[in-house]
């Protein structure tokens, strides 16, 4: 995941796609290259055949992901602006956060993304049973994330920091809670595709739904990879 983030290359759009589709694609083009590559990277061992170079997952899902990424991009920018406006409050607040928990959560989400990518590969090889267990593992790592985050919230609240404490904590709670809810939504989506994987609704030739769910989960992971350094680490 990390290495693909830096090695992404823009993919060209086919001219024969409809104009409306091109519109939506070109606007998400850049943001999705990373994800495209992370999937295709895991696919390299598979014979790609006619499916090479196509968008993994459904375009509808990509439009949704684009909207979500835009919302988070705005939230992150507003956070950054406020940090520039109140450097002392933010530095003090950041010092109060438990970086170990944040790191543990990063690992949890990264490993769950790994399991999701593995699950896609398994189903591509026709091994739905393995894919199902890999999806369960991914959901499990998501649950680990939720537990750690809840403990972290509990700790902060016990120390007397809540959303009204100051501007840092307002943004800390809003950003992380909003991401937290996305983890839950992502887990529900994963559970949905896991059940369908088990029912063999996906086959090597018909894997769009699973890929769409995987893309959403990678987005949730990616957002944390931005959120974690932004809120916990960067000074």
């Amino acid at each position: 995941m990390n290495q693909t983030l830096s090695s992404s290359t823009p993919t060209s759009l086919s001219p024969e796609s409809t104009r409306l589709d091109t519109e939506a694609q070109s606007s998400i083009g850049n943001s999705m290259d990373t994800e495209t590559d992370s999937i295709t990277a895991s696919e390299t061992s598979v014979s790609k055949g006619s499916r090479s170079g196509r968008l993994p997952g459904d375009l509808a899902m990509w439009i949704f992901i684009l909207a979500e990424l835009t919302a988070f991009a705005l939230l992150f920018s507003i956070y950054a602006v406020n940090r520039a406006l109140y450097p002392d409050i933010f530095a003090e607040g950041q010092a109060g956060l438990d970086i170990t928990s944040g790191l543990a959560n990063t690992l949890a989400l990264l490993s769950s993304s790994y399991f999701v990518a593995r699950a896609v590969t398994s189903v591509e090889h026709g091994n739905n049973r393995k894919g199902f267990y890999e999806l369960l593992a991914a959901i499990g790592m998501g649950a680990v994330y939720l537990v750690i985050k809840i403990l972290e919230y509990k700790h902060s609240i016990e120390l007397g920091y809540d959303i009204t404490t100051n501007v840092f904590y307002q943004y800390y709670y809003l950003l992380t809670a909003f991401h937290f809810l996305h983890v839950i939504l992502g887990m529900i989506i994963l559970a949905f595709v896991a059940i369908k994987t088990r029912k063999k609704a996906y086959t090597p030739d018909s894997i769009m739904g699973l890929e769409s769910g995987a893309c959403y989960w990678h987005m949730v992971d990616l957002l944390w990879l931005i959120l974690f350094p932004l809120v916990y680490v960067l000074h």
Partner: peptide, 25 residues
């Protein structure tokens, strides 16, 4: 690059996405 765009996925995103944001709201 070709893509797939299905009505089923669009429908799921409408119902799922809306429900998610209704609950948050």
């Amino acid at each position: 690059m070709s893509e797939t765009f299905t009505k089923t996925m669009a429908r799921n995103i409408f119902y799922g996405g809306s429900l998610f944001f209704i609950l948050v709201f």
